[in-house]
Amino acid sequence: MIEVEHLSKIYGSTVAIQDVDFSVNSGEILGFLGPNGAGKTTTMRILAGYIPSSTGTARIAGYDVHEQSMQVRQRIGYLPENPPLYPDMTVESFINFVAQIKGIAAGDRIIKVNSAIERCQLTEKRSVLIRKLSKGYKQRVGIAQAIVHDPPVIILDEPTVGLDPKQIIEVRNLIKSLAGQHTVILSTHILPEVSMTCDRATIINRGKVVKTDIPANPTQDSPLKSSYKIEVEGDITPIIPLLKNIPEVIELQVNPIENNYHSAISILAQPNQEIGKDIAAIIVNSGLGLLEMRRDRPTLEDIFLEVVGTGEVK
């Protein structure tokens, strides 16, 4: 539904994004993840037809963003980081105004406006002036204006920035409800945003895509190594060579615990390898007590830090 190939944007001597490649499948929610200043907003603006790219191509629903701009705009809903709202209009009058701008026929307009208001849970606020709404409700109005014409593609740029925890949960649930009926790309620098909302993630850093096709909750098929934390009772000296000889083991560390021959063992294994049964068998067959064994699966944060670095991430 969304195809981006070798997209670049250059402002004078400043490269905002360079050779960006990714795609989004129909009905999917893709998290476009990166630190502040990585090039997320620039990419979203190009996809929305707000600014042109310097080189490369982007297609939405088969239409070229640059050469077929009007066809693309008819098929997208766009929520920029700061929603373009008119504070002195009521919620209903504003959504109706946007529906007119987007060319919805007069006979369909009432149905479309009511549907957008209901889907965004704005029914009780439909007659309220937008300037009197909380930021969370303003974000809902922003999403309502993006979906009022029922577009196949929705582009959301930092949709929960500045919201309180309750508002964040509400907006996340709203975005998740769009999946299936719409294809959604959501840019953010907030890791839980992707884990709790998206199907996949693409990571951008310093204007370049550094990782793509990452499961939002990478419990399987992760490119990172697996780790096991084990606590054993007894003399572990004889089993250390046996554990190291497991083919998938990369690294093993022993941390003695001053408590009746207890030891903590950390094992690092190859990615996507389940060696827990082998570890347990060696320990039990040696007559030692297996007090605890835990596998630490890689998280989206682990992957993010692996490819972007260890700078602070919100």
Rank of each mutant, 00 (worst) to 15 (best):
V153E: 00
V153T: 01
P159T: 10
P159M: 09
G162D: 12
L163Q: 07
D164A: 14
P165D: 03
P165G: 11
P165V: 02
Q167L: 06
Q167R: 12
I168H: 05
I168Y: 07
I168M: 08
I168L: 05
E170H: 09
V171Y: 14
R172G: 05
N173E: 10
L174A: 08
L174G: 12
I175N: 11
S177Y: 12
L178N: 12
H182M: 06
I185C: 09
L186K: 13
L186E: 14
T188G: 14
I190P: 10
I190S: 09
I190T: 12
L191R: 12
L191V: 08
P192C: 11
E193Q: 13
V194G: 13
S195K: 15
T197R: 15
C198K: 10
C198A: 14
C198S: 04
R200V: 08
A201E: 15
T202Q: 07
I203D: 11
I203N: 15
I203W: 08
I204L: 14
I204S: 08
I204N: 04
N205C: 05
N205T: 09
N205L: 10
R206K: 10
G207E: 06
G207P: 08
G207T: 04
K208Q: 06
K208S: 11
V209Q: 03
V209H: 04
V210I: 11
K211G: 14
T212L: 09
T212A: 14
D213L: 10
D213M: 13
P215K: 06
A216C: 12
A216S: 09
N217E: 07
T219V: 12
T219W: 03
T219E: 13
Q220M: 04
Q220P: 02
D221E: 05
S222N: 02
L224F: 03
L224P: 00
K225W: 08
K225V: 14
S226W: 02
Y228G: 01
Y228F: 09
Y228M: 03
K229E: 09
E231D: 09
V232C: 13
V232N: 11
V232K: 06
V232Y: 06
G234H: 07
G234Y: 07
D235I: 12
D235R: 10
D235G: 10
I236W: 01
P238Q: 04
I239F: 00
I240M: 00
I240H: 01
P241N: 00
P241H: 02
P241L: 00
L242M: 04
L243R: 00
K244M: 10
K244V: 04
N245P: 05
N245F: 03
N245V: 04
P247Y: 11
E248H: 12
V249C: 02
V249Q: 01
I250G: 02
I250N: 02
I250E: 04
E251K: 11
E251M: 06
L252Q: 01
L252K: 00
L252I: 14
Q253F: 08
V254N: 15
V254F: 07
V254C: 04
P256V: 07
N259M: 07
N259C: 10
N260D: 04
Y261Q: 11
Y261A: 08
Y261R: 15
H262V: 15
S263F: 11
A264G: 15
S266Y: 08
I267S: 05
L268S: 02
Q270S: 09
Q270F: 13
P271A: 03
P271C: 03
N272R: 05
N272I: 07
N272Y: 05
Q273D: 04
I275L: 10
I279G: 01
I279L: 03
A280H: 01
A281V: 05
I282P: 11
I283Y: 01
I283R: 00
